[in-house]
């Protein structure tokens, strides 16, 4: 059991020099450059486009060998990206904003989820259809998401003191068991699980009630933006192509996911449902017009506004469109 860092560092140093060399030499002449891509959760169709990119060779064609690193409950995305062990990480604008406020040199270089997937899930007999319905209810949520609820309340003039917060983790059981009236969760996640288990639920997307926070954003360090642009462009290009394929056939993406990760305990029906449910969050008129991952000054401004409510003040230059411009250009 030896710590691998020294050799890893050496190796990264090597990757860096080859990257700089790549600016001068024609890229095709280069051998595959290995980079890590840090996902934000365990493997699932949530990252279906990336699997397609890898499976169809969109990255290897561009001379990039991408290793997809799964996340987990105790695997924050920011540290490996800051440390340089991962070139790009999947984060969300609010997490990135918090990290930047703590001194992390991040830029958001692409937005996979135009609409934030946060939702309030409730049962049909006691539904939450609008933020006002939250009053007097017990909401189950991970404590880390407290600021999300606070922002929703303040945008919609709901007194948060009227809502009882019950800390829950990961699982929809407290809602089904009646410990809580509703859950703060991802629309593509717990409601899908409940539906597969035969429990009908009502979901209210926060994004439909003024909560504008980009999710599943691609983050990279300023250093990478300056020194590893080629790799970033190649990686994002593969992503864009992968997600376009995904859009064309989400079910195929779900099938690919289950096939690629046979040891992850994925269930095809769940993956198909999730794949379908995340389409409206990721693809919009905007991406139709400008391409996958795009963001405009307006969407950024809306994010800055919501993030201020979340007590994560950021300026618009947290977003950097230059990589996307190269990809789509």
């Amino acid at each position: 059991m030896t710590f691998r860092t020294p050799s890893r560092r050496l190796f990264l140093g090597g990757a860096l020099t080859t990257a700089t060399a790549g600016l001068i030499l024609p890229r095709r002449a280069l051998a595959q450059e290995a980079v890590n891509f840090q996902l934000s959760w365990l493997h699932s169709v949530q990252f279906g486009g990336s699997y397609i990119a890898q499976n169809k060779g969109y990255w290897s064609d561009a001379g990039l060998e991408v290793a997809l690193q799964p996340g987990g409950p105790n695997a924050p995305v920011e540290p490996p990206v800051v440390a340089g062990t991962a070139l790009v990480g999947i984060s969300a604008a609010d997490y990135t904003a918090a990290a930047v406020n703590q001194g992390a040199p991040f830029k958001i270089i692409g937005v996979a989820m135009q609409k934030n997937p946060f939702a309030i899930a409730s049962l049909a007999e006691n539904p939450v259809n609008s933020p006002a319905d939250l009053v007097g209810k017990k909401i189950g949520m991970a404590l880390a998401n407290m600021p999300v609820l606070e922002a929703l309340c303040s945008i919609n003039d709901v007194d948060i003191a009227e809502i009882e917060v019950v800390p829950t983790q990961y699982d929809p059981a407290p809602l089904v068991q009646g410990q809580v009236d509703c859950l703060l969760c991802w629309a593509t996640d717990l409601p899908v699980a409940m539906e597969i288990q035969g429990v009908e639920s009502v979901t209210m997307l926060l994004a439909d009630h003024g909560y504008a926070v980009h999710s599943q954003t691609y983050i990279a360090t300023e250093d990478s933006l300056a020194n590893r642009r080629d790799q970033l462009v190649a990686l994002m290009k593969g992503e864009v192509m992968g997600w376009q394929d995904y859009h064309a056939d989400p079910a195929a993406a779900a099938a690919l996911t289950v096939e690629m990760f046979p040891d992850s305990g994925l269930d095809l029906a769940t993956q198909e449902l999730q794949a379908e449910r995340q389409v409206p969050l990721m693809f919009s008129d905007l991406t139709e017009a400008e391409g996958f991952g795009w963001f405009t000054d307006e969407t950024v401004a809306a994010n800055v506004e919501t993030l201020a409510l979340l007590d994560k003040p950021v300026s618009a230059d947290l977003w950097d469109r230059s990589i996307l411009e190269e990809v789509h250009g």
């Binding site: 990961y170 929809p172 059981a173 717990l190 288990q197 990760f261 040891d263 992850s264 305990g265």
Partner: peptide
């Protein structure tokens, strides 16, 4: 992979 991964997955998936 591993049982820990499956645990997280199973809990989430009810």
């Amino acid at each position: 992979r591993g049982l820990g991964v499956l645990t997280v997955r199973a809990l989430r998936a009810l």
